[in-house]
Amino acid sequence: MQIFVKGLTGKTTTLEVEPSDTIENVKAKIQDKTGLPPDQQRLIFAGKQLEDGRTLSDYNIQKESTLHIVWR
């Protein structure tokens, strides 16, 4: 499925993911596209910070959802 990651600059990155992907895995995909290391990424969805060990489905993140990224 496709999801979007929007940064503070307003730039949006598209990712191809599975609902079973962990947040850690998603951060690795973001690094592949942007070069930003996972330890500098904070992902937010529906006002919650996403924890590395959880999956996208744990947070009810579905296709075409938009996550927000904040740099540490």
Score class of each variant (00 low, 15 high):
M1Q: 03
S65P: 01
L8R: 10
P38D: 04
G53R: 08
L15N: 00
R54I: 05
I69K: 01
Q62S: 12
K27A: 02
S65I: 04
Q49K: 09
I3T: 01
I23S: 01
I61V: 10
I23A: 02
I44A: 05
V70H: 11
G10V: 10
G7N: 09
K6A: 07
M1R: 02
K11W: 15
E18I: 11
T22R: 08
K48A: 09
K48L: 11
L36G: 04
F45C: 03
L15E: 01
G35K: 05
V26W: 00
T12V: 14
P38S: 13
K6Q: 10
G35R: 05
R72N: 14
Q31R: 14
F4H: 10
Q40M: 12
Q49A: 12
N60K: 07
D58H: 10
P19E: 06
N60Q: 10
R72D: 15
T34G: 04
L50W: 01
V17N: 00
D39N: 12
E24S: 12
T12N: 07
K29I: 06
V70Q: 13
E18F: 14
N25Q: 14
R54K: 14
L50T: 02
L56R: 01
P19K: 07
T22N: 04
T66N: 04
G35I: 02
A46D: 12
T66Q: 06
I23F: 02
D58F: 13
Q41W: 15
F45Q: 02
Q62I: 13
W71L: 15
G10T: 08
H68Y: 14
Q41M: 15
N60T: 04
D39Y: 11
S57F: 07
L36K: 05
P37I: 07
P37T: 08
E64H: 14
S57W: 08
T66W: 09
H68L: 14
N60G: 14
S65T: 07
Q40K: 14
K11E: 13
L56E: 00
K27G: 01
N25W: 10
Q41T: 15
Q62W: 07
G35E: 03
I30K: 00
H68A: 06
E64Y: 14
R54V: 05
T12Q: 07
I44V: 11
R72A: 14
T34L: 14
F4S: 04
F4E: 03
R42W: 10
P19M: 08
Q62M: 11
L43M: 03
R42N: 12
T12K: 09
Y59T: 01
D32R: 12
E51Y: 06
Q40W: 12
N25I: 13
G7Y: 14
T9I: 10
S57R: 12
W71E: 13
N25G: 08
Q31A: 14
S57E: 12
S20N: 13
D32F: 11
T13E: 12
T9R: 12
I44F: 15
G7P: 06
T55Y: 05
A46F: 09
E16T: 12
G7I: 10
R72S: 14
Y59L: 04
N25H: 11
L8S: 09
E51G: 04
Y59N: 02
G10S: 07
Q62H: 11
D52M: 05
L50R: 00
T13S: 07
L36W: 15
S57A: 14
I69N: 06
Q40L: 11
E24I: 10
Y59E: 02
F45P: 00
Q41C: 10
Q62N: 08
I23D: 00
T14G: 05
S65K: 03
P37R: 12
D52I: 05
S20E: 09
T9H: 15
F45L: 03
P19R: 06
F4C: 04
K33W: 10
Q31D: 03
Q31G: 09
K6R: 13
D32A: 14
L50M: 06
T9E: 11
T13Q: 10
T22E: 03
S57T: 09
Q62V: 13
T22Y: 07
G53P: 06
L15W: 03
K48G: 05
T12S: 09
D21F: 07
T66D: 03
E64A: 08
I3Q: 01
R42M: 15
Q49D: 14
T9A: 12
S20Q: 10
K48I: 14
T55C: 05
T55Q: 07
G35C: 05
F4D: 02
V26H: 00
V26Q: 00
N60P: 03
V26E: 00
G10E: 08
D52R: 04
T55N: 05
Q62C: 05
I3P: 00
G53W: 13
S57Q: 12
K6M: 11
E16R: 09
T34C: 08
S57C: 04
K11T: 11
S20G: 11
Q2T: 15
G10N: 08
V5P: 01
D39C: 09
Q41G: 05
L50Q: 00
P19G: 07
Q41H: 09
Q40D: 07
T66K: 04
E24D: 07
D39L: 09
F4L: 06
I30S: 01
L15K: 00
A28V: 10
E18Y: 15
N60R: 06
V5W: 02
Q40H: 12
G47A: 04
G53N: 11
R54N: 09
F4G: 03
I30L: 10
N25K: 14
I69S: 03
K29T: 03
K6C: 11
V5C: 03
S20D: 13
G35T: 03
P19T: 06
I30N: 01
A28L: 15
V17S: 02
A46C: 07
K48D: 05
M1W: 07
K11S: 10
A28R: 15
R54S: 08
V17Y: 03
Q49Y: 12
G53V: 06
S65W: 03
T12A: 08
V17T: 03
G35P: 02
V26Y: 00
G47K: 05
Q2P: 08
L8G: 08
K27L: 06
F45M: 04
G10I: 13
V17E: 00
Q49F: 13
K6W: 06
S65G: 06
E18M: 14
V17F: 04
S57V: 06
D58G: 03
E64V: 03
K11A: 10
W71G: 12
D52H: 06
L8E: 08
S20V: 05
Q62R: 08
T66H: 15
Q40A: 11
L43D: 00
I61C: 01
D58E: 10
V70A: 09
R42G: 07
D58C: 02
I61W: 01
A46I: 05
T55V: 06
S20I: 06
Q49V: 15
V17G: 01
S20A: 09
V17W: 02
N25A: 14
G7C: 11
I69G: 03
P38N: 07
T9G: 15
D39S: 13
T55R: 10
T55D: 03
W71H: 14
I61Y: 01
S20W: 13
R72E: 15
K11Q: 12
E64S: 10
G53L: 08
V26A: 02
L36D: 04
G35F: 04
L15S: 00
K11H: 15
T66Y: 07
L56P: 01
K11G: 12
W71C: 11
Q41D: 02
D58N: 04
K29D: 02
K6F: 06
D52V: 05
P19L: 10
G10H: 09
A46P: 01
T55P: 04
I3G: 01
G47H: 05
I69E: 03
D39W: 13
T13C: 10
E24W: 15
E64G: 15
T34W: 15
G47M: 04
T55G: 02
T55W: 03
G10L: 09
T12I: 15
